[in-house]
Design a protein around this nucleic acid. Structure first.
Length: 663
RNA sequence: GACCCCAUCGUCUAACCAGGUUAGGACACCGGCCUUUCACGCCGUUAACGCGGGUUCAAAUCCCGCUGGGGUCACCA
């Protein structure tokens, strides 16, 4: 027997058909055909296709590890869950539990009333339960979904993405869409950021039915106001023995993790305080700072039912005893999220894929409380061009950026609705442009494709242009006026530009940069090299890489605080110039060109203030990105030089003689 | 490193579940038409089933393996 499982020595042992295919079953080698014939039985897809709790994933992993020798015949998978999953899905689809995918969904029957659909976990399996005896219950709870951003930093485009699918799902089923603010991280959460989330989501057109600002029957919707609830629930877990106090210090934890990594293991808590007696734990808790951890089962495995992926199986031995309550008495995301989702009667948790790996812990919490878990659907992550998780360093991620850059909210939502998802019309043609209502009307989460979609700004621009061109001139004028007046920017820009204008039309020349996303630098890019444009002979000129660092420091420093005032900006920039040992004038010039596009502008700090945090930061990041390219100036120069050369050639060429022209 | 997820043009995706398509559409690119210019619009070109095996008359599609990419591994969310 080889551990790779690719070849066999004796061929199929079941029917002696001589096939040497790769399948191994019951400890012997069977041909694939035999294996299939034996496997596909009515029982195997009756709702539980893993009779012994073994899954395809598990087996593949074992095989990779080369531990096949430890595998006894009876433990090899009876069936292939993926195939069964598809069958099951098909069956449910025909019963109307899942909406039929594709264009024909509007006409295909039977489909139940919206609220009856998709109301149950597709794989309602808890840790320790087998799938065999699990019926598929159908309840009629009203659909309730939520988006739960954390008010740390700028409102994120990912929040809008997840929010869009949640909102659409709620509307599709006639349910409720809840906004919950997850501000349990006291150090990083700010009220300012919370307000920004409201503003941006409203701008995008994602209006919630219940939330901190508008209330609702399941409030409060701000986690910092629910501390007492979490405390009570933690006590329940402590009493039932599903959680324990942990007195380990941060230093000890670091050391443990380091050792585990050195041994190439998954870094996880070693259970040092897990077995403290109740009395000792109680006594020490009065004097020592401590956290409360979930007592996660150490044996067996947990199957996470994901509506988009099927069952995802985890080995319990890999999973940490998660901290539920921090030493400051506030809960971590994991506890707060489970408690709130239950108390707020959330039926479907549609969230980003980064949460998939912590879902076993959440399921364990539901089990410990004796609650029924919601349906989980983990959406793919938005990506940068290099396929990594979308980040502000490589993409504008702030919703405020898109608002300021003149992207229409309907275009943004349309674009987000194209990420990992596609729509077709009645004839089967792809539909690229659609309204939110159209998106909601035939939403089908099972159509989501799971590869992480790259956030392509070019396509967003195209889509935005499509919307703008579809307007009547009057509508366009209205939108432009509204855009200019947004946040009183119009007046602020006017004030800055006023002393520089010579005519009304001149205004637009100066003001344009405040109403754009990206800026074309052309030859002005030379100012990115800090000090390069200085007229002083003694000026300090930074190298390209030093200049890049200079911009990175500017970005980091300005990003730190949410307060966006000219004074604050000036103070920060002065410090950076001082640290870089460049003349303030030269440093400010580099920032001016990067942020405003040219070396002549209204006063820098006031301009940046009016330009806004999102645009300023994104332009600074863009500049430092350009500087990372060694030939960035060459590229800027190339076009100009070509044109100049042509013009020069034309100017300097001798006038044609009369003879020549006659000839 | 361990675990988990994922894999079709450069990008977003369709076809996959239910095997038979000339692998379709959109953005971008390139070329052409239109146009005083640019843009819009119209037309066209280039461009993909990651690799290896298996099943089958037939594999992008079903199965296995490999490879690659991503995510997670916090008293962050």
């Amino acid at each position: 027997m080889t551990s790779s499982g690719r070849t066999t020595s004796g061929g199929c042992t079941r029917t002696k058909c001589g096939s040497r295919s790769c399948c191994r079953r019951a400890g012997r080698f069977w041909s694939i055909a035999c294996w299939r014939a034996a496997r596909i039985r009515p029982r195997s897809c009756g709702g539980g296709c893993e009779p012994r709790g073994w899954s395809y994933t598990r087996c593949a992993r074992r095989r990779r590890r080369g531990t096949s020798s430890s595998m006894t015949s009876s433990r090899w998978p009876r069936s292939n869950w993926k195939r069964c999953w598809r069958r099951l899905r098909r069956r449910r689809r025909t019963r109307g539990w899942i909406r039929r995918s594709g264009r024909s969904c509007a006409t295909r029957r039977p489909i139940l009333a919206p609220r009856e659909r998709f109301c149950q976990p597709l794989w309602p399996r808890m840790p320790g339960q087998s799938g065999d005896d699990m019926p598929i219950p159908v309840t009629h709870k009203p659909v309730r979904v939520r988006v739960a951003p954390s008010p740390t930093g700028d409102p994120h485009v990912g929040t809008a993405y997840i929010g869009l699918f949640n909102l659409a799902f709620a509307r599709f089923h006639g349910g409720q869409f809840v906004l919950r603010i997850e501000d349990t991280d006291q150090k990083r959460s700010t009220r300012h950021s919370e307000e920004a989330i409201y503003k941006s989501l409203r701008w995008a057109g994602l209006q919630w039915d219940e939330g901190p600002d508008i209330g609702g029957a399941f409030g409060p919707y701000r986690q910092s106001e629910r501390s007492e609830i979490y405390r009570e629930h933690t006590q329940l877990l402590l009493d039932s023995g599903d959680a324990y106090r942990c007195f380990c210090t941060a230093e000890r934890m670091d050391k443990v993790r380091e050792e585990q990594r050195a041994r190439k293991q998954t870094a996880r808590y070693d259970g040092f305080c897990r077995h403290l007696s109740a009395q000792e734990s109680e006594a020490r808790s009065l004097t020592e700072p401590h956290v409360i951890r979930l007592k996660f089962p150490q044996d067996g495995e947990t199957s996470v039912p994901d509506a988009l992926r099927g069952a995802v199986v985890y080995d319990n031995g890999q999973i940490d005893d998660q901290v539920l309550m921090k030493s400051d008495g506030l809960p971590t995301y994991h506890l707060a999220n489970v408690v709130d989702d239950h108390l707020m009667a959330i039926t479907h948790v549609i969230r980003a894929e980064e949460w998939l790996n912590s879902t076993p812990k959440h399921l364990a919490l539901y089990a410990a409380f004796g609650w029924e878990p919601p349906v989980f659907a983990h959406m793919p992550l938005l990506r940068n061009a290099d396929k990594s998780k979308i980040s502000k360093r490589k993409n504008p991620t702030s919703l405020e950026y898109y608002q300021r850059a003149g992207i229409l909210p309907e275009a943004l939502l349309n674009f987000l609705g194209l990420m990992g998802y596609s729509r077709k019309d009645a004839v089967g043609q792809d539909v690229e442009k659609f309204t939110l209502d159209e998106f909601i009307a035939d939403l089908d989460l099972t159509r989501i494709s799971l590869g992480g979609p790259v956030f392509d700004l070019q396509k967003l621009d195209w889509l935005n242009g499509l919307y703008l061109r579809a307007m009547t001139p009057e509508q366009l004028a209205d939108r432009v006026t509204a855009f200019q007046r947004e946040g009183d920017r119009h007046a602020a820009v006017g004030q800055l530009v006023q002393e520089r204008v010579t005519s009304l039309g001149d205004y637009f020349d100066h003001a344009g940069t405040f109403f754009r996303g990206a800026v074309e630098y052309g030859l002005h890019a030379r100012y990115f090299i800090v000090g390069a444009g200085s007229r002083k002979k003694t000026a300090v000129r930074l190298t390209r890489l030093e200049s890049q660092q200079f911009f990175e420091r500017c970005t980091a420093s300005l990003e730190e605080q949410a307060v966006w005032t000219p004074e604050f900006i000036e103070a920060r920039l002065r410090v950076i110039c001082e640290e870089a040992k460049v003349a303030v004038g030269d440093g400010f010039m580099a920032v001016r060109v990067a942020c405003l596009g040219r070396p002549t502008s209204p006063p820098l700090f006031e301009s940046l203030h009016v330009l806004g945090r999102a645009l300023t930061l994104s332009r600074l990041r863009h500049a430092s990105g350009l500087l990372a390219d060694a030939n960035f100036l060459q590229r800027a120069l190339a076009d100009v030089e070509t044109e100049l050369a042509a013009a020069r050639a034309a100017l300097l060429s001798p006038n044609p003689t009369p003879e020549a022209s006659h000839a």
